[in-house]
């Protein structure tokens, strides 16, 4: 039992838009163990982001319960929610969500600033380490507008990693990237997963879902398929292939 990281019980989210109720999530029951790498797929509007936001403690469910690492989050106060976001979860968004006009290093330091336990004394060193991990040590003093999309997403990933969370959530992390750059990002995800970090990501493309270990498919606010991935792709090899193809094309 102690291997379970995420457990949802009848998780439901309903948005009120004027007179109409939008049932974004309808009684979702999922369990994700530590060390898993899960891809969530589904048509646009099927509730993927809503689920991610609830798992990431960015939003509260309308009903149902959500256990993270054994803690029943529905009973927590706002400030403890903030603590969980800070301590246990790293979030990567489709739109990167970096602070503009702020260097990569300062962006990565951001979560450390809000760490009340002050686990890390030297913020700059810790942030530099995280940037090294994503291969951006040489770009720490660049601001987002001086970085490519792939580099910005790697900065965002470094920011997600800096507090050493047990869970990384990525909502369409490569939605704004070309395919080679996307594979680079998945390569990083696979490396982190190999180190023991649990990853849950949303992706549109079946090809990319194959980098994960397990796939959840959603439709109309429900999980309709839950399967292990048999022919898992290795991002490192795919990357080599892609580079070789690009060289032949030239």
């Amino acid at each position: 039992m102690e291997n379970i990281l995420i457990k949802t019980v009848d998780l439901t989210k309903t948005y009120n838009v004027g007179e109409i109720d939008v049932h974004a999530l309808k009684s979702v029951n999922i369990t994700i163990n530590k060390g898993e790498f899960v891809a969530i797929m589904g048509a646009s509007g099927s509730g993927k982001s809503t689920l991610m936001n609830l798992i990431g403690c960015l939003d509260m469910p309308t009903s149902g319960e959500y256990f993270l690492d054994g803690i029943n989050t529905s009973k927590l106060a706002q400030n403890e929610y903030a603590n969980i976001r800070n301590q246990k979860i790293g979030f990567v968004f489709q739109g990167f969500n970096l602070l503009p006009r702020t260097t990569a290093l300062e962006n990565v330091e951001l979560p450390l600033m809000y760490d009340r336990l002050e686990k890390v004394k030297d913020h700059q060193k810790q942030a530099t380490e995280a940037l090294k991990k994503v291969g951006l040590a040489d770009r720490m003093h660049h601001i987002p507008s001086q970085l490519s999309g792939g580099q910005q997403q790697r900065v965002a990933l470094a920011r997600a990693l800096v507090n050493e969370p047990s869970l990384i959530l990525a909502d369409e992390p490569t939605g704004n990237l070309d395919s080679v750059t996307s594979v680079e990002v998945f390569h990083l995800f696979q490396k982190l997963n190999d180190e023991g970090i649990t990853i849950v990501m949303v992706t549109h493309e079946r090809d990319f879902a194959a980098f994960a270990k397990r796939i959840l498919e959603m439709r109309d606010g429900r999980v309709i398929r839950d399967a292990k991935i048999k022919d898992r792709l290795n991002a490192e090899e795919e990357l080599k292939k892609a580079i070789a193809e690009a060289e032949i094309a030239e």
């Binding site: 400030n79 903030a82 976001r85 602070l99 979560p111 809000y114």
Partner: peptide, 16 residues
């Protein structure tokens, strides 16, 4: 507003 959202998402409290 986005900046505030980013800060909140990485663990800032309302009081911060």
């Amino acid at each position: 507003t986005r900046e505030i959202g980013i800060r909140l998402s990485v663990g800032a409290r309302a009081s911060d």
